[in-house]
Amino acid sequence: MKIITLPKENFAEFVGHLCSFGEIHAPIKRGDRSFVFAPVKDASEIELDCVRTILPLKKYFFRPMEVMFNFCAGEGYEIPSEVTDKRIVVFGAHPCDIHGLNILDMVFNGRYVDTYYLARKSKAAIIGLDCIPDDLCFCRSTRTDFVDTGFDLFLSDIGDKYLVRVGTSLGDDMVRAAESLFYEVQKEDRDAYKRKSIERRESFKTEIQLQDLPGIMDLEYESQVWQDVGETCLSCGTCSMVCPTCYCYSVFDELDLDGSSGRRKRRWDCCLFKDYALVAGGHNFRAKRSSRVKNRYFHKQRGFVSLYGRPSCVGCGRCKAQCPSGIDIVDVITKLRSETRV
């Protein structure tokens, strides 16, 4: 992989160059202590120290709500052109964010291709940025604290410079567009990177053991833990909305008053909603909240492993940070594990 450095004093100018590759989106502040990815005009607006945004990057490619196609009697179906229009540059994606997108890439590709997601994804450049974990981050446990694919450029803070890994040809184009701002990697840069890497590794405060979790989940299928979480869970949907890898959606038709034209839409759905597994006729395969909670953990930590070879949790901490009733995934998993040890 091509690796170069960008002195921090050149950063703002580099960001200035990026707008020729699309609208720049980066973390900015919202509310007292929250952050969101949103359009920025220049580098000064970017919150470089943001640990996590409210919504992950999926919002750009898999929209909270979107029109799948319009319909009109006698004229058939028409896909909205918006899907393929706009180029964006996402700056400041953390390794867990990028892993989240890589997981969605797997889901939305496959035998059938989700054209909406992929059309938007193909129009976006991803520039990663490393970060210092807070108390809620457990991406080291999920092995998503480092990323080697899924970005065009990735910036690591090594003091007064960024070490820049170039992931794609588009990333290289972005570098070439501002070539004079970049430098070759020196020995002291390599040393600084390695030093920082250790520092970062040692700053993780939360750790859970996940490797053998699928087996433990099978073993603890009837655990009281699920009942307890079911009593606390509000079924409010927050954890799914903010999860980088929750991809469930619900499809519905919306009619115009003429009764013949309208649109088919989809919106983010959540497996904790009461009617998630409801079938026509009224049978609900997961009528109890505890069974829905269990299904959610099972899917992330057990089912996804069988389907795609890895758990779908990226350890970003959003579900804990945003849960109104304070359900903590690390806590739930720890309880499951300790029950096994007894």
């Binding site: 496959g110 959606y249 619900s250 499809v251 998630y276 079938v279 099972f298």
Partner: peptide
């Protein structure tokens, strides 16, 4: 088997049972 299905192509999640998509 019968499950709630909304996409039929292994994306929407509703028909997931354990580690299988009923639709795929």
């Amino acid at each position: 088997l019968e499950r709630n299905m909304q996409c039929g192509v292994g994306k929407c999640g509703h028909c997931m049972v354990g580690y299988k998509y009923t639709c795929l």
